[in-house]
């Protein structure tokens, strides 16, 4: 086996304009190196202008998502050796505007997160003197959906996100679902109104790739389908009992 591997890395400099292109770098192929270690080797030793985000290098901060050979992946937890003999193609996440090299623009994603009201809503303003009681089963009901690290791999995997930039998208909808399912929350109606608007849950055509690429097994696709069911039930209820809105 060769002791080096070729990384083909996307380069884009907005100050020069044009289209992104791929540049090849030869990096050491070490058994415990992740793709991120390869990128850092380039930045530290070969070309200091290569630009990418990274921080925790332990799969929890969500900064270092990129396309590796066309698949949205966290570079800090993908062993370089799994791509041997290479070359490995590393690009910015699909479906996002590219700021520079491997850095994409996430402002729109953050606006979408805020839009779904991801906080505990109490209609009754009740503040218990101690904790809200919540059984392990009630915790389990939403726990999976609270594990999202906002890495946005799901947006890069979702063709609907690519075709319609206004689509609320998997992570934001899963987050809405997380709060809806939390026994401490009373904001379900508000959030249902938001997610069942145009460009919400009904845009989803169940491609299911969001759940495949999710590094934390959040299963946003499941969240969206469950929300569709809830929204339908609510719609029928309001249809049958027009004044049934409480």
């Amino acid at each position: 086996m060769s002791d080096t591997i070729i990384l083909e890395v996307a380069r884009f400099n907005p100050e020069r304009g044009g289209e992104p292109s791929y540049e090849s770098f030869e990096v050491p192929l070490r058994p415990d190196w992740m793709v991120l270690d390869g990128l850092n080797h380039i930045k530290d030793q070969l070309d200091g202008s290569l630009t990418f985000r990274w921080s925790c290098r332990m799969g929890i901060c969500g900064s270092c998502g990129m396309m590796i050979n066309g698949v949205p992946t966290l570079t800090c937890e993908s062993l370089l050796i799994n791509y041997a003999p290479g070359p490995v193609r590393v690009g910015p996440l699909d479906h996002f505007p590219v700021v520079k090299d491997l850095v994409v623009d996430l402002d729109d994603f953050l606006a979408k997160l805020q839009k779904v009201r991801p906080w505990v809503v109490r209609k009754d303003d009740f503040k218990p003197p101690r904790e809200f009681m919540q059984s392990p089963a009630q915790l389990e009901a939403f726990h999976q959906f609270s594990l999202c690290i906002n890495c946005t791999l799901c947006y890069a995997a979702c063709p609907v996100s690519g075709l319609d930039p206004n689509f609320l998208g998997p992570a934001a909808i899963a987050l809405a679902h997380r709060y809806n399912l939390d026994s401490r929350d009373q904001g379900v109606e508000d959030r249902l109104d938001i997610v069942s608007q145009h460009e919400g849950i009904w845009d989803c055509t169940v491609v299911g790739e969001c759940s495949v690429v999710c590094p934390k097994n959040v299963d946003p696709s499941l969240a969206i389908q469950q929300l569709k069911l809830t929204a339908t039930k609510e719609w029928f209820k309001s249809f049958l009992l027009p004044r049934g809105k409480h």
Partner: peptide, 19 residues
């Protein structure tokens, strides 16, 4: 820590629902 609980932090629970 209690405030965090009220804000939705998914603290692990005892079987009876307490923190």
């Amino acid at each position: 820590l209690l405030r965090l609980e009220h804000w939705g932090c998914p603290w692990s629970r005892e079987p009876d629902g307490r923190i």
